[in-house]
Design a protein around this nucleic acid. Structure first.
Lengths: 232, 232
DNA sequence: TGCCAAGTGGACGGAACCATCCACTTCTGG
DNA sequence: CCAGAAGTGGATGGTTCCGTCCACTTGGCA
């Protein structure tokens, strides 16, 4: 996690700056492109052809490329809202008087977002590796905030003492893979999150699990889920 | 899991049949191609260009395509050994007098394989969705075997009663994503497996975890890990 | 040994996508 | 209203990869 509330402000401000110098028609096109990108990314993943986004936006490719010189720029901009949401939830979690509740809500929120918004998991990671000072700072701020949350939850005796902040990333990446393999199967992601939250608790106790997923190996029909080809 | 020992036999037999009708030079080339494919897949993932495999094997593309008409055929053949290993471990697990030990070993083995052999996670899934009767049967045999293992482990009071066989697939897919995102980071996969095995136990107890991964968000440098682009 | 079926390699056409370039259109300030 | 700066679209060349085709080579059997 590396999104702090500070990021929200700076992101929004930067967005304003980007938009401000634009002619009104250009600004309108920019919005159209972002809307189209969100739709197309949701349908076909963040590797959908740029031309598809442009067509959907009713705009030429050149316009798209001028506004967003690289695909990454487009992805970042398209998922800025979700990133902000993550930042807000992290901030809330740190302020939560019950640190475990905050911890739990943070994890559940981000994992649900990964589940619901196709393309977001990739965008999530994409948002950080940025050479700009601003991003590096936001990244570190987020990490510090999460580390604080972890320490508080451990001090409260709710989170196991050997939980390491990097475990969050491990969990998010795992969930990312799961979601990629089973788009739309909320049950699978829900199960993973429930299991891991139990494992993260200091007081080992078995609670009720959400219903299991209905996946079976044979459900991987046809040649192969393209989403998984590249990765493994 | 859908690999039974029956599969090993049939696979090997089928392989023999495939090979038997071949002229000696063709058989040699087939082996060369498989060796090259293993190397190339390990280096560049299972979506590496077919031409690269062919070149590495010192063979023309036509030869490759005649022997393995589709990429999936090649992938399946290249990872047949690992699939067999999975089948053997499943068979051993079912026969293990301590069902939890078998269950644990099965999971750890497959996850370690996913971690160590790039391309294998994809191949693993790829091996199943097959329209042939043989594969469907092998698949069902494996599922039955694993279900038996689960039941026995639950009866022994080691595995939590609400564990569902589909959770295995959930776990493997999650690990698959993790491994894809962090190739070479055994610690991350180890942590995930340790957490989940704890969560799967009937008797909740906190054991020692393997050391945490050193991943940090900022480690996702450069544009973006290509392995993850497609998937999310 | 010689025939020919089996096997082979690489050229080739086609598809998908990227990202640039440039002639044309549209805003906007004076 | 009009000049020119800002913005635009789509044609275009380039790259990568796929998968087939066909003229040539090679192994094995009579």
């Amino acid at each position: 996690m590396a999104v702090g509330s500070s990021r929200i402000a700076s992101r929004t401000a930067a967005d304003g700056e980007v938009t401000d110098g634009l002619r009104v028609d250009a600004r309108r096109n920019r919005e159209r492109i972002l809307t189209a990108a969100r739709e197309v990314f949701a349908e076909r993943g963040i590797d959908a052809p740029m031309a598809t986004v442009a067509r959907r936006a009713g705009v030429g490719v050149a316009t798209l490329y001028r506004r967003f010189p690289t695909r990454d720029d487009l992805v970042r901009a398209a998922f800025a809202r979700q990133m902000d949401l993550c930042g807000r939830v992290l901030a809330e979690a740190v302020d939560d008087p019950d640190p475990w509740h905050g911890f739990r809500r943070l994890i559940e929120t981000v994992c649900a977002l990964q589940q619901e918004e196709r393309g977001f998991p990739a965008a999530f990671l994409l948002a950080f590796p940025d050479t700009t000072q601003e991003h590096t700072r936001a990244c570190e701020h987020g990490e510090r905030a999460f580390a604080t949350l972890v320490r508080r939850a451990q001090a409260a005796g709710a989170l196991r003492p050997d939980f390491h902040p990097s475990d969050l990333l491990v969990m998010l990446l795992a969930n990312c893979g799961l979601v990629a393999a089973l788009p739309g199967d909320g049950a699978a992601s829900g199960r993973l999150v429930a299991y891991l939250l139990e494992a993260f608790r200091a007081e080992p106790a078995r609670g009720a699990l959400p219903p299991p997923s209905a996946v079976r190996l044979r459900d991987f029909s046809g040649p192969f889920p393209k989403e998984l080809r590249r990765e493994c």
